[in-house]
Design a protein around this nucleic acid. Structure first.
Length: 274
DNA sequence: ATCACGACCTGGAGGC
DNA sequence: TGCCTCCAGGTCGTGA
């Protein structure tokens, strides 16, 4: 479900949790793909802590507390974080529930590709998940010159290049296709073929595509909802993703779907030059 | 070192 | 209805 705009939408919807005190911690005992067991002992250490802030780094969400630790959450493909009244029937795939008095914060994830952990803020940059993340396009902005420099000598296809979280943190499969369409670049083009000018156009397109989606509260393809359970409306504004066969918004050529690195990729064969 | 691919899971949609 | 196949907003480990 979640790329940068979706995670940011979740973050904003959870802001009302700031000031709440964590009164209990429950976990399902079920593992996630990257963790065999929930970090039960560490979660327990958060009981009594007060939530002081919410941050986002790429696709990672950080729930800060008045203790030295923060909760780190990644939504994987189907992860959800919901803030709702205590006593709400437990979702089928709930993995962690933090009681907040009369409310609760619930992390659920059907496919279990997500991650949840407790990190020491002072050392968070050393956490495997956050170490090596590239700049966040919204928090840090995109430095077009640095982006271009990073592409030098890279034989990877542009689609793979912009999905690389060490290049930019937060771009995922939908917005990769969208940004390449907007900048008129073919997803299979090799990164080292970028020029300073086309690299800048791509950087600019990534920025536009992410900000547009943010304004629309993210793209709800199938699973995505924010902390209140609301869907985003950005699906209606996608130009190519999930639009196979539909006319290109620029030139009317039917949009094509292909598989790159095992992932669905959409592009216009006419206006996205090879 | 790079790069491309399969694996990890569950559930919804569509075909028959 | 039910069964089968395909597909999905991510990331990691492997092997070429």
């Amino acid at each position: 479900m979640p790329e940068l705009p979706e995670v940011e939408t979740v973050r904003l919807s959870l802001l009302p949790a700031i000031g709440a005190t964590i009164t209990s911690a429950w976990d399902s005992a079920k593992g996630l793909h990257m963790q065999k067991k929930p970090p039960r002992a560490k979660l327990g250490k958060l009981v009594g802590a007060t939530i002081t802030g919410l941050r986002r780094n790429g696709k990672y969400l950080l729930v800060d507390t008045d203790r030295p630790e923060s909760l780190l959450v990644h939504l994987g493909m189907t992860g959800r974080v919901r803030l709702h009244a205590a006593g709400t029937p437990r979702e089928k795939h709930a993995h962690v529930v933090l009681g907040l008095g009369d409310r609760e914060l619930v992390f659920s994830d059907a496919r279990r590709f997500g991650q949840i952990d407790v990190v020491e803020r002072a050392k968070e940059k050393e956490h495997a998940a956050l170490a090596g993340l590239g700049p966040d396009p919204i928090v840090d902005g995109i430095d077009a010159a640095a982006f271009y420099k990073r592409s030098r000598g890279k034989k990877a296809q542009l689609k793979a290049f912009i999905l690389d979280q060490t290049v930019l943190a937060g771009v995922g499969n939908i917005y990769a296709s969208e940004a390449l369409w907007l900048s008129k670049l073919r997803p299979t083009k090799r990164a080292h073929r970028l020029t300073a000018k086309t690299a800048e156009a791509l950087a600019q397109a990534i920025d536009v595509v992410l900000r547009t989606s943010l304004e629309n509260h993210g793209t709800s393809l199938r699973d995505f909802v924010d902390g209140d359970g609301a869907e985003g409306s950005n699906y209606d504004y996608l130009k190519v993703y999930d639009r196979k066969g539909q006319p290109c918004a620029r030139c009317k050529t039917p949009i094509r779907r292909t598989i790159l690195q095992g992932r669905a990729t959409y592009f216009c064969p006419t206006c996205q030059a090879p």
